[in-house]
């Protein structure tokens, strides 16, 4: 279970960042007063354009960033006060976090298993299960640098799932993957849902969200503009599909996004 209560994240801008963002403001509000609950046995989707605040929200949930205001609880633990306990029960997958290319998949799997307090027997059992599921057996002794982009992504997923976490946070799960690997990943997320895990993903691919998510929250300009099951969102926006719903909400909130920028 993930409970986000009034999350606000404000970044102080360095002179270099101000120049990059072409702004005179000293701070940037990446996420503003966002509340959301992701339940076990559900896949919750964070939808929004690039720079909307999806990744910042996920980073806060994953304990990598501290909220400026508000709080986040993961499996009942506060992400700031009990960060280590939160990290023990989550898996955070993002393109920004990479595996050291020098090591083999097998070595990293064992290393992170030990780092996440697993005994050797459990590590071996998890290794067999995940390597079979993701067809990694032929690649387990290859160094990460020798793998293709899709295989690297799969290796990252396999290594991060070593501790069978209760909560899976996945930033852009199919980004950079070929159609076959993307299907394997999406199927595994469904499997995790069936096992009662809490899954939260971010995406801007609306058909993917439509197929996968039990519940979605759209974020525009750092603010949550809608939350609910897909039928609820379609009903509230009076649209036929999620893409239309997104564009309708995007146009309505465009001004506020500009203001936030």
């Amino acid at each position: 279970m993930i409970e986000i209560n009034g999350l606000t994240k404000i970044y102080k801008l360095s002179a270099k960042k101000k120049k990059e963002l072409k702004t005179n403001k000293d701070v940037k509000t990446a996420v503003s007063d966002l509340s959301l609950t992701a339940k076990p046995g559900e896949i919750t989707g964070l939808l929004g354009p690039n720079g909307a605040g999806k990744t910042t929200t996920m980073r806060c949930v994953a304990t990598l960033l501290s909220p400026t205001k508000g709080d986040i609880k993961v499996c009942g633990y506060d992400t700031v006060k009990d960060a280590q306990k939160v990290r023990d029960s989550i898996c955070f997958l993002t393109n920004e976090i990479k595996l050291d290319e020098h090591f083999t998949v097998d070595y990293l799997f064992t290393f992170f298993g030990r780092l996440k307090n697993l005994d050797e027997k459990t590590i071996e059992a998890r290794k067999k299960e995940l390597f079979d599921t993701f067809n990694m057996n032929d690649f387990k002794d290859k160094k990460i640098e020798e793998l293709s982009t899709g295989m690297k992504q799969k290796a990252s997923i396999v290594v991060n799932l070593v501790n069978d976490p209760e909560v899976v946070i996945f930033d852009e799960p199919t980004s950079g993957l070929d159609i076959v690997t993307a299907r394997v990943v999406l199927d595994y997320l469904k499997k995790l849902r069936a096992e009662g895990k809490t899954v939260i993903i971010s995406t801007h691919i609306m058909p993917e969200a439509e197929k996968l998510c039990d519940k979605v929250a759209m974020i525009i300009g750092g603010r949550k503009v809608i939350e609910g099951t897909i039928p609820e969102v379609l009903e509230k926006t009076q649209t036929g599909d999620l893409e239309d719903a997104f564009f309708k909400l995007f146009m309505e909130n465009k001004e506020s996004e500009k203001e936030e920028e």
Partner: peptide
């Protein structure tokens, strides 16, 4: 180097102080 390559983060999200 590890910060730049994003490999340090994989340890930072592990349950280690």
């Amino acid at each position: 180097g590890e910060k730049e390559r994003g490999t340090l983060s994989s340890m930072l999200i592990s349950p280690v102080k």
